[in-house]
């Protein structure tokens, strides 16, 4: 079960889980996030190392390979659900934003 601390995700957590929909190692995640966000989001290697450990402990991701000092991970079902839930929350926020301006625009 995911821990209570992951009830909502920070921006960095969201992109880490998003990257891990496909199996990849920590370095891949570090490289993919800036590309995915056009350089808007960066994640530090210290933070990522901790996050990968915490996500594994919480069952949101699982380790797939451990070659030398290189570990690969992939999203679990719980992780995918978490990501879906976060996506839903973000969409709801966007919808609320749009509704607000539509109402003001009509008024």
């Amino acid at each position: 079960m995911p821990r209570a601390k992951f009830n909502t995700l920070t921006e960095q957590m969201f992109y880490v889980l998003l990257c891990l929909q496909r199996e990849c190692c920590g370095m891949d995640v570090l490289e993919q996030i800036p590309v995915m966000t056009g350089g808007r989001v960066h994640i530090g290697s210290g933070t990522l190392y901790d996050l990968l450990e915490q996500f594994t402990d919480a069952g949101l991701i699982r380790e797939t390979k451990h070659e030398g000092r290189r570990r690969s991970y992939v999203l679990t079902e719980a992780g995918a659900l978490m990501l879906q839930k976060e996506y839903g929350r973000l969409c709801a926020q966007v919808q609320d934003y749009q509704n607000y301006f539509e109402v003001r625009g009509n008024a």
Binding site: I43, G44, T47
Partner: peptide, 14 residues
């Protein structure tokens, strides 16, 4: 350089 820690919440926890 990109700092090693980029999440202050996690950093304070650590």
């Amino acid at each position: 350089p990109i700092p090693l820690d980029t999440d202050p919440v996690m950093e304070i926890e650590a």
